[in-house]
Design a protein around this nucleic acid. Sequence first.
DNA 1: CCCCTCTCCTGATCGC
DNA 2: TGCGATCAGGAGAGGG
Length: 295
Amino acid sequence: MPELPEVEVVRRGLDEHVRGRTVARAEVLSPRAARRYVPGPAGLVAAVTGAHVTAVSRRGKYLWLQFGDGSGTDALVVHLGMSGQMLVRTPGGERHRHLRALLDLGESEVHFVDQRTFGWWLPSQLIEVDGTFVPEAVAHIARDPLDARFDPDRVVARMYGRPSEIKRLLLDQTVIAGVGNIYADEALWRVGVHGARPAAQLSRPKLRALIEAATAVMGEALAQGGTSFDALYVDVDGDPGYFSRALAVYGREDEPCPRCGAPIRREGFMNRSSYSCPRCQSRPRSAGPLPRRGR
DNA sequence: CCCCTCTCCTGATCGC
DNA sequence: TGCGATCAGGAGAGGG
């Protein structure tokens, strides 16, 4: 699933290929890809056609093509959801079965392929938030650990004393951006904290260590090209990342904990799976085991 | 504001 | 062979 490292890999690849190009033509093949844009698919096409790409930027899991003056809109925000891909293709090639939208840049095309359709494209205007210009659609998202102005103390302050389970806060993109289910589990394992533990039970230094662990694990994953479990996460050339082999707990039910050897457990949590070490990460007493929930 | 649950969607897989 | 259930989960709407 694309989390911060994976989205950053895509951003880098896109930036290299599309910076300086002009959108000659756009197509929205699946109206759902434009569902967040009130003017709809035709409006989206109109907004980006003729736009000149000056850069590809990112905050957390949101990335955007930034457009220069004279373009119909400031930016095209892209969220990959669970399975979105931004593929750089040569014009006239095959169209993937799950192709949802495309940008024709003349010498190349950008194909938005998304099997599970949780991803979206949204034209957006830039606004200034806390001294940085970001698209309106991203204004509510916190800075992520790769941001030069990321402030871990601020994140600690946002978490400290809260009654919410710590994993909820790690996944809250308005608290710290970029962390998804995989890296949340890995960061919690690194500091020996169970995700269901209320943040209020954690000291400031422990919260600080958790944020540093999340930063570290995402940095390591980025260096490996991100985490790919299947063909659903690939870079702009369609190639996978290699961090899945380095994961300590995520997706490793019943395998030995790399630290103590206890078999990794899987539990339902927030309508998804959480992986942890039963010995290194004791479950809080107050919150009992949550039943796995069906659809 | 804060906290939490539910819903959107497709396709692989599994049991019967 | 088919069919229904289950699972994967990011983000935002909405209820309390």
